[in-house]
Design a protein around this nucleic acid. Structure first.
Length: 297
DNA sequence: CACTTGACCTGTCCGC
DNA sequence: TGCGGACAGGTCAAGT
């Protein structure tokens, strides 16, 4: 669930609280969630000061003073929630009752003890991970080598979008925009939202999307991500921000999780189907299925 | 190489 | 009520 707007919302929250704090300790049990040796943790994490919290695609990068970075991928059900230490202090103004209960809870995989609070990495399904890497190794990771442009940055131009799509001509347009090497940060929610806004059926082959609609899609991706970010992202079931609060984008969603409800553009009931192996929401009137172009004779 | 499918996990919901 | 199965969806490995 955490896609670009959700991960960026978490980043913004963490960036308010973490920089400047020293890591005093870390508790973890599941090696899948935190695949780092005790020795590495002792040498590069404990005692390190947090310098900044960055993001690339859906990966959070917590930069440390040791020259290492803690990379975190929330995958589907991950949460990074910060709780300041109780008691008075100038850090006041922080909500005391966020929307998740006391921490740690059943899904807590890692607990980081900082100088002024604790950072909890929760992950019900254990798909996510948090791992330490030397700064210089990060650009060498396969994922960072392949990943496409940030859609809310200036380098996500229409030309670049089209150029990267050109490697995926015969797959569906939905599969193509979910591909992180085409652009970074789109997941199932914003794929459905932007395809509806651009009035493109998700099963349309990339090569069959008209230039006009491709241009509309490029803009629709940018717009849907930006609007969601303004609402703190989408909370379906698990997602919460760094303070434990849900995002409200789904209240404004066009089609996602709205099967049986009227299309905002034409009033036709939204239908849920399956495309590229994922639940897919479309307006059957605004998003006409592709004509079966018989390519052989 | 392009492309698709299954695996990774756990909790929830639906039908019987 | 209990139980099996489908489903949730990001990414990568393994398959065609």
């Amino acid at each position: 669930m955490p896609e670009l707007p959700e991960v960026e919302t978490v980043r913004l929250g963490l960036a308010r609280y973490l920089p400047g704090q020293k890591v005093l300790g870390v508790d973890f049990d599941n090696p899948k969630s935190f695949p780092n040796s005790q020795e590495l943790v002792r040498q590069q994490l404990i005692g390190a000061r947090i310098e900044s919290v960055d993001r690339r695609a859906k990966v959070l990068l917590i930069r440390l003073s040791t020259g290492y970075t803690l990379l975190v991928h929330l995958k589907m059900t991950g949460q990074l929630v910060y709780r300041p230490n109780t008691g008075r202090g100038w850090g006041g103004g922080h909500p005391t009752d966020s929307l998740i209960g006391s921490l740690p809870d059943r899904s807590t995989r890692v607990t980081f003890t900082l100088e002024r609070g604790k950072l909890y990495f929760n992950d019900q399904r254990k798909f996510g991970w948090a791992k330490l890497l030397p700064d210089e190794k990060i650009p060498e990771l396969d994922f960072f080598q392949r990943v496409g442009p940030e859609p809310l940055e200036a380098d996500f131009t229409f030309e670049e979008f089209r150029r990267r799509l050109s490697r995926r001509k015969r797959t569906s347009i939905k599969a193509a925009i979910l591909d992180q090497s085409v652009l970074a940060g789109v997941g199932n929610i914003y794929a459905d939202e932007s395809l509806h806004a651009a009035r493109i059926h998700p099963e349309t082959k990339v090569a069959d999307v008209s230039p006009l609609k491709l241009r509309r899609l490029h803009q629709a991706i940018i717009d849907s991500l930006r609007i969601s970010l303004e609402h703190g992202g989408s909370s379906d079931r698990n997602y919460v921000d760094a303070e434990g609060y849900k995002g409200s984008y789904l209240k404004f969603a066009r089609v996602f999780r709205r099967e049986g409800q009227p299309c905002p553009d034409c009033g036709t009931d939204i239908v849920k189907t399956r495309v590229a192996g994922r639940g897919t929401h479309i307006c059957p009137r605004c998003q006409k299925p592709p004509k079966k172009t018989p390519r052989n004779r």
